[in-house]
Design a protein around this nucleic acid. Structure first.
Lengths: 206, 206
DNA sequence: CTCATTGGATAGTTTCACAATCCAATATTG
DNA sequence: CAATATTGGATTGTGAAACTATCCAATGAG
């Protein structure tokens, strides 16, 4: 096991020492092993953790508070991996602003019925989806049922593959893998969609 | 055409007057028609524009600077709708931090070759995708080719449908529709993916 | 013994997105 | 017509988020 001072931890991760101190204060990085009053040992688990924090911030676009929630879920031995994944989704359409009305919620429920998906009546996803649809609607660009079904079909394709890629061998590893895949593949999916749009457009026209 | 003072504009959109003034200053809302030195008329185009701004902020999660870019693209008569859509994607994996190496770029190129997709060697998407893959890799959770192909397949499904839903009749309307759909359906897709994961997980296990 | 370094604490900075005040020019009301 | 209220524009203030810089006492190396 490689041990190091904070300065080497900074060198290895490319982060400034004050930033690492800040993450320690915010509970994003567990404290090193104290050696006397003014020294502490850090090891490669700290290097890994810092890389994970930066990826969640830079790639997945999480705020520090959400990063902490994700890390807590990974570290919580009492959560199964699929419970842990839920911890990530605290953002997405905020409940503020264009609250959905009953007709949007009904539209969401119908979509799920067509796919045979279960969704608790109190799920935050239900409200978030309805809110997004309400926005589209109020701007005069409501998606058709057909359009939504295509999105759900694509999501089903992806969701199955995501879940199939997980194994339950080591709970801690599996939880981290699940979180990392769920969050860091989000931008990948969005970029691919963008490129697919461009290619479909090129195909259809010039 | 309904005309109104700023206070009524505020009442209709639910936004505080100081916020509307701020958006005027930032160029997110075109100035009203000046009537004397201390009065100006606003109309329903201003109401629409404000609703659009709020949706881009709250639902799509854009920052004000990105909102301005999107609005400029919608308003620029010289851009075709599919050129306009490109303006939106200024965020996603930032170029900072874990820069991709050549092997990640090659992986992206191979993925595209398998799908028969074209991608300019200097496209920002190429670099952004490679950076996201580099992150996954450095954390020890690289997605398999199979996994990536599934994502690309799902993206193709969606991209085709997105493009098919556009018509070229009115350029201004088409550009707005394209931007709104591209950006506001992003959270919809991510939420559906999350729900699909949950359902796939339930199906596979208990 | 001297002195640079370390970890911890505290305070300062920057950016973003507003929100509050102030003011002079009008409308409106009595 | 005078008193009051409202408006648009400019300037300044605020609060959160994510760092960044300074200070300091305790060390450990030379």
């Amino acid at each position: 096991m490689i041990v190091m001072w904070m300065s080497e931890l900074a060198a290895r991760t490319g982060l400034p020492v004050p930033t690492i101190k800040y993450y320690l204060r915010e509970g994003l990085l567990p404290p090193g092993e104290s050696v006397g009053a003014t020294r502490a040992h850090y090891d490669d688990t700290h290097v890994r953790r810092l890389r994970l924090v930066r990826a969640l911030i830079e790639v997945a676009g999480l705020r520090l508070e959400d990063v902490r929630r994700v890390l807590d879920a990974i570290d919580d031995e009492d959560l199964s991996w699929h419970e842990a994944v839920g911890a990530a989704h605290t953002r997405l359409p905020s409940p503020a602003g264009g609250a959905a009305d009953e007709s949007q919620r009904q539209r969401v429920d119908e979509l799920f019925q067509r796919r045979g998906w279960e969704l608790s009546p109190v799920s935050p996803h239900r409200e978030a989806l309805a809110a997004a649809l309400a926005s589209l609607d109020s701007l005069g660009h409501p998606p058709s049922d057909d359009h939504l079904d295509t999105y759900a079909e694509a999501a089903a394709l992806i969701g199955r593959k995501d879940v199939a890629g997980l194994d339950e061998s080591d709970r801690a590893d599996a939880a981290e893998h699940a979180e990392v895949s769920t969050l860091l593949l989000e931008p990948v999916l969005l970029i691919l969609r963008r490129i697919a749009q461009e290619n479909a457009s090129r195909e259809l026209r010039g």
